[in-house]
């Protein structure tokens, strides 16, 4: 086909341009959905409970991802500082995922359990009171603002559309019991979301203030979960190399 013909016919130009651009995307992205090794087979990964999900949404709302990544790369320095490299499987229920390489603050992929709830609460409220050299902003409103969980079922239903196995029916619930165990399956049942959210906040007391259910409760419950779902002591130290 002559240049002249393409350049003088906008319709053909658009179609050919789109074909040229999508070829790259098709070759690079589509195969990942079919390659078996993309998402590693590993025990322990589960969707977020209602409280943790609400915490994740606050994490995104406050823009934590602008300074903190959640992706430990397979490098020696990162292994020494942060722990085992992140697996694709560990964020398979994250929509959107929190990978990245922008690290004004440290990577948070394995921050769960590293500090006490009290530390997290105090640090989020006034970071420099604990880490003098920190450049992190203060987030004092988190422990003052009561958590709005009125739309928690809607949030879970939205994730359901993307394939996260939150259950609505008895059959789906039973399927989750099989896959995740009964305790987790209960937390994934959408009709009980509010009840489960309140119960977890009361037992966990994440913001160290038992009288109030705040946004801090939700955010700290999320942070304390990060990177703790997989027990790497159960695997040979090169087990996950075979997936690459």
């Amino acid at each position: 086909m002559k240049h002249d013909k393409i350049e003088r016919n906008v319709g053909i130009l658009i179609i050919l341009t789109m074909l040229a651009i999508s070829a790259g995307g098709l070759v690079e992205i589509v195969p990942l959905f079919f390659i078996k090794e993309t998402v590693e087979k590993v025990d322990g990964v589960r969707p977020y409970s209602p409280l943790e999900l609400r915490g994740r949404d606050i994490y995104i709302r406050e823009g934590c991802y602008l300074c903190h990544s959640q992706m430990i790369r397979p490098f020696r320095d990162e292994a020494l500082r942060y722990g085992h490299y992140s697996l694709a499987a560990e964020s398979k229920y994250d929509h959107p995922f929190q990978w990245g390489s922008k690290r004004t603050g440290p990577d948070l992929a394995r921050v769960g359990g590293k500090y006490s709830n009290d530390w997290q609460t105090q640090h989020l409220t006034a970071p420099r009171s604990l880490v003098p050299q920190s450049v992190m902003p203060n987030y004092p409103w988190l422990s003052k603002t009561e958590l709005d969980y009125s739309d928690i079922q809607g949030r879970m239903k939205a994730l359901r559309v993307t394939g996260v196995p939150y259950s609505t029916s008895k059959a789906e619930f039973d399927k989750n019991v099989k896959e995740f165990g009964e305790d987790t399956a209960k937390n994934l049942h959408i009709p009980d979301a509010e009840k489960n959210l309140i119960a977890q906040a009361q037992v966990g007391n994440y913001d160290t203030n038992p009288d109030k259910l705040t946004e801090m409760d939700a955010l700290v419950s999320y942070l304390q979960l990060l990177g703790t779902m997989v027990d790497f002591r159960k695997y040979d130290d090169d087990y996950f190399a075979k997936f690459r």
Binding site: R73, F75, R76, R233, Y235, D236, D237, D238
Partner: peptide, 29 residues
Amino acid sequence: VATKVDGTQETKTTHWNMRSKLMVEMNEL
């Protein structure tokens, strides 16, 4: 050299990939 769950070690050879390269770096350390 990989260390298994039971503590025994095994030398392995694979095609080039980042995760195996990390194993080499950690072996050196």
